[in-house]
Design a protein around this nucleic acid. Structure first.
Length: 554
RNA sequence: AGUUCCAUUGUGUAAUGGCAGCACAACUGAUUUUGGUUCAGUUAGUCUAGGUUCGAAUCCUGGUGGAACUACCA
């Protein structure tokens, strides 16, 4: 077995670089700004950067791009570190752009000395106005021709705190008529008298992205600096700074951001959902954040497999949420313990079963695992079954319970429906069945074969727990592309809470983070809100349900 | 409009001038003490018009369509 996996465009570049002897070892980095929680798009980038380093025996740094003190917080730093580890990756070095502030400052001095940067007293509006637009060249700032000495003095004063926010900026002196707007004398330092999460009040000037990112890459000797497509216009500027500064030539490569159906991915939008309480927090199980998916019950392995399957490319895309769910099911099918819980109960009485009797039945934990073991489940005369598993007038091919129909109770006996009771509204309240003693699971000598097997919970032994049924957060595939506010497309039914679900007693010791399959109902995981007194389960994903699908069609 | 990038079944991604393949989804059927899983199979694609070539998804030209850029955000 020698399955050749084709290379993506970055792997190709790297293999060429390596074989050409351009590098002895590659070095990548994952550079989040700590201004929000990581989401599935970041997972792709993490998987890419760490994966490339692992594949080619290189290194991958974690670098926080913390050059804007206004939006960045330690809470985000902690969550980011935690999420990366949870995904299964370990960085070689942990760095912060703020570690380089002194170095970056001296880079700026160097640029001034080369007469390639100047202090501009224009305000924000004036700078924007003189920038021109895509069809019109910009005009030079009146401050563009200050002398090197004057610029040096002014920039030093900026650092010393002599000026207020917005009063002055440092700009690179390039070309106000350049077709790439980023070359029209980009601002590289601005004044912000703000507290930084790491450097505190040491600085009141902060470098802009374009004067921090590539330089940080260079300082760390990053060989392949991988980012998303919207930075493609920045690449020439990235190279220009490196060239003028005469520092280590890192190279930038871009790939297309991953989008997912039925959700939004921009941090701005996600922050809105959190701040305006459409969700309970960044880790709400409906969020596309790593922490949300973890809480929902998605596994790290499933997410890694997903990233792998989706791959990378340079074209616009929107990946079907169903693909992610496929990998979640694939992993959970192999690993989640099967248990029984009845979400919407109706009582079933076994008329010929002794009222005082309880049997402990051995039921397999996972048919996918050879050594998955068994557990004991109590069985008695009165049990809960799923309301949808009984119909007064069953349609064709309904392999469940109805008047006169037989079904197997999972791991127990075959029962036959003899009668049922309705209330004044016509709602079925009780179902009466007889059981076949010779049909006991494991040593069935009855010779009877039934089409259907249903799950159940003994009423006398059931424990109760809260169950949260989650569905997609939005009603449309691509809410960001719809007209109007994306929040108009929120699925109001994305969370349904069932407060007292009956389930088998083995679940009483379930711990937060554990995964289960509620037989025939889906995968569920224990929420972080859960404790021994009050268990809470989140529905991770439903099982495929070809019966429901067939019913819907007819 | 200028610059840059992109275009392969419904979705995502391969094919690096030589048989258009894989996964998901959809649809059949078989197996099944989960209408799950598993197994077998089916449907379905190179945006368009030219050119180069023995041969083009691939290279070239034009067109069409989409995206990004005009923050003291990253």
């Amino acid at each position: 077995m020698n399955e050749e996996k084709s290379l993506n465009f970055l792997e190709e570049i790297i293999e060429n670089d390596l074989s050409a002897g351009k590098y002895q070892q590659i070095h990548t980095r994952f550079p989040p700004e700590p201004n929000g929680y990581l989401h599935i798009g970041h997972a792709s980038s993490i998987h890419l950067n760490f994966g490339l380093a692992a594949r080619y025996a290189g290194k991958c740094n974690l670098r926080f791009d913390d050059t804007n003190p206004i939006t960045e917080e330690t809470e985000y730093v902690d969550s980011i570190r935690n999420d990366i580890k949870w995904l299964g990756y370990q960085w070689d070095n942990e760095y912060y752009a703020s570690d380089y502030f002194e170095q970056l400052y001296s880079f700026a001095i160097k640029l001034i000395e080369k007469n390639l940067a100047y202090v501009d007293d224009s305000n924000s509006d004036q700078i924007a106005a003189s920038k021109g637009d895509i069809n019109t060249p910009g005009t030079n700032s009146p401050f563009r021709d200050r002398t090197v000495e004057e610029n040096l003095k002014l920039f030093t004063e900026m650092r010393e705190g002599k000026y207020k926010d917005g009063e002055k900026v440092l700009r690179a002196k390039i070309d106000m008529a350049h077709p790439n707007l980023l070359f029209r004398d980009p601002i590289i330092y601005r004044i912000k008298h703000a507290h930084h999460h790491r450097t505190g009040d040491k600085w009141c000037i902060y470098p802009m992205y374009d004067f921090a990112h590539g330089q940080s890459d260079s300082i760390e000797n990053i060989t392949h600096s991988i980012c998303t497509l919207e930075f493609i216009h920045h690449r020439p500027l990235y190279d220009w700074f490196i060239q003028q500064l005469e520092i280590y030539p890192s190279h930038q490569y871009e790939f297309a951001r991953r989008n997912l159906t039925y959700t939004v991915m921009s941090k701005r939008k996600l922050l809105q959902l959190v701040n305006e309480n459409y969700v309970s927090g960044w880790d709400d199980p409906r969020m596309p954040t790593i922490s949300g998916m973890r809480r929902r019950g998605y596994t790290a392995k499933a997410i890694r497999n997903f990233c792998d399957a989706v791959g990378i490319a340079k074209r616009e895309n929107i990946v079907d949420l169903g693909l992610l769910e496929h990998f979640v099911r694939e992993d959970l099918n192999k690993n989640a313990k099967r248990v029984m819980a009845v979400l919407d109960p109706v009582k079933l009485v076994i008329t010929n079963y002794e009222a005082s009797k309880t049997e402990l039945l051995e039921i397999e934990n996972n048919p996918e695992q050879e050594n998955g073991g068994t557990r004991q489940v109590p069985f008695s005369k009165e049990i809960w079954i799923e309301r949808e598993d009984f119909m007064v007038v069953p349609p064709k091919k309904f392999f469940r319970l109805g008047p006169g129909l037989m079904v197997r109770l999972k791991g127990a006996y075959i029962v036959k429906c003899e009668d049922f009771k309705k209330d004044e509204n016509g709602v079925v309240t009780e179902i009466y069945c007889s059981y076949i003693p010779e049909s006991k699971s494991g040593n069935d000598t009855s010779g009877i074969h039934v089409k259907g097997t249903i799950h159940w919970v003994s009423i006398a032994h059931a424990i109760q727990a809260e169950v949260r049924l989650y569905d997609r957060l939005f009603k449309v595939e691509n809410p960001a592309a719809e007209t109007g506010d994306f929040k108009d497309y929120i699925n109001e039914a994305s969370l349904q809470t069932l407060s007292k679900v009956n389930m088998e007693p083995s679940l009483s010791i379930a711990k937060p983070g554990e995964h289960f399959q509620f037989l025939r109902k889906g995968y569920f995981s224990v929420d972080i809100d859960s404790n021994e007194e009050a268990l809470v389960f989140n529905r991770t994903v439903t099982l495929k349900d070809s019966w429901a699908k067939a019913q819907q069609k007819s």
